[in-house]
Nucleic acid binder design. Structure first.
Lengths: 251, 251
DNA sequence: GTCTCCTGTTCCGCAGTACCGAATGTTGAT
DNA sequence: ATCAACATTCGGTACTGCGGAACAGGAGAC
């Protein structure tokens, strides 16, 4: 454990959350590190393109080298590589957008996004982070984690994003138990009002959960029509199973 | 300048270049830092999701948190946000793929990629890094840099990627002079055999070059047909100018 | 089975560097 | 002009980053 590196990581991640441009003082307050220390580290990170400063001085932002890192991560991810050939057909089959995500700290990060097959403009969500407890992808993953890791996640207070977000640890534990029994997760407007999601876990050859695959869309389209949810769940589960098999998982 | 942070940045970037999975010993050799130091830092970076280790131990790779960083960078980039509405029409107009890139160290990093408008499978290159001296985007940017920055880039030996890569500093200086006179850059199989590119610089409201916009495709399609190059150059230049104006540049 | 090699991981005393309060510099508002 | 807020610089020293040596574990050869 290197304290300086710890702090630099905190600074980088602070620049990735919320406002894209932050001053030294703002970062200092966000990560609770004195200003000169923040400044010195920003300067070091800047030398490697991980951070850059506005031309006229003042605010700092992430630099293009982080984009290289992100791209390299995707290039090296077997889950993402294999997900593409399953997610796109599922999007066509269901008529909804498909996301594949992995757990990163308390968030789910989208590693693949197959657009809903219509002509409306959609924003590519690869790299987007959603708190695990507010999305079906997150529930699907965390439900299948080893006990210790799950306990650690549940021991940290979680944030309410909408009036429907479940934040009580006991309620979350119960929800995860339900996910384990059923083999899939449902999210109903817990991250964004109006939106819902369905997801199933994806396993690798060591039988560990490595991510989840799911669909996201308007709640009234995904959850309300009679019989629709069941059909979507079936499609999502069988696709997640196929993807798991392709990753070497037995089930 | 914080040495520990410097080293951690080197380690992260080493994981982004070449093989996606590296052992402690390999990283140690790549960045010339002793193994225990590399190991300690990897462990610290792992705690923040920036790095992860294979389940059975051994090799390390970048973690999903870097994808968040990359995504946040794109979300905060005005160049990228505005490039989308110009690059896509240019791709349709020219029938070729359009890239918008920025300089990061000795490389150009692609921040936006509009696919060639055909039905063939294409790989999204956002986040890809190309050595500046081997691509038209890089030439277009570096030609317009302030003298000091350009000198610094030219003082470092550059790598030959193909038999056609220009690596001699004097020849590069001359090529950049040509770019400045003409207002655009041409690359002919310097990065990848068979591929070529045309690009023009993009400026912001401070009249500084902030990136470049260009098209990439097979050399025989871009450069060989009579009159085609001229028409493509015109389209690229006027698009880059429009994008510059939208970023607040006077010209 | 044993042995060897290679790699990741741990250890811990101390040298040197990370640290940060105080000071300085810059900018914008009044 | 003054003031406030913010970024940046400075430099002595406390404490932490460091890395050679040792250890642990796994894989392959015999």
């Amino acid at each position: 454990m290197t304290r300086a590196v710890e702090r630099a990581a905190q600074i980088l991640l602070s620049l990735a959350s919320g406002s894209s441009r932050l001053g030294v003082s703002e970062i200092s307050e966000l990560v609770d590190i004195p200003k000169p220390t923040v400044h010195t580290m920003l300067r070091t990170l800047e030398r490697h393109g991980l951070v850059e400063q506005e031309v006229e001085g003042g605010k700092y932002a992430l630099g293009p080298a982080v984009l290289q890192l992100g791209n390299a991560y995707l290039d090296g991810s077997e889950l993402r590589a294999r997900a593409a050939s399953w997610a796109d057909p599922l999007a066509r089959q269901t008529g909804e957008a498909v996301w594949v995500g992995v757990l990163s700290g308390p968030n789910v990060v989208v590693v693949h996004h197959a657009f809903r097959p219509d002509d409306l403009v959609q924003i590519l969500e690869v790299g987007a982070a959603v708190p695990w407890h507010t999305c079906a992808l997150g529930h699907a993953i965390v439900a299948c984690l080893d006990e210790e890791r799950r306990k650690r996640l549940l021991s940290v207070p979680v944030q309410r994003l909408t009036g429907r977000t479940v934040t009580d640890p006991d309620a979350l534990r119960q929800a995860l138990e339900t996910v384990r029994e059923r083999g899939y997760a449902v999210e109903d407007q817990e991250a964004t009002l109006g939106d819902a999601g369905l997801a199933a876990p994806v396993f690798d050859r060591t039988a560990r959960v490595v991510g989840a695959l799911g669909i996201v869309g308007p709640a009234d389209r995904l959850l309300a029509p009679p019989g629709r949810q069941g059909r979507l769940v079936d499609a999502v589960r069988s696709t997640a199973r196929a993807l798991s098999r392709e990753l070497g998982a037995g089930r």
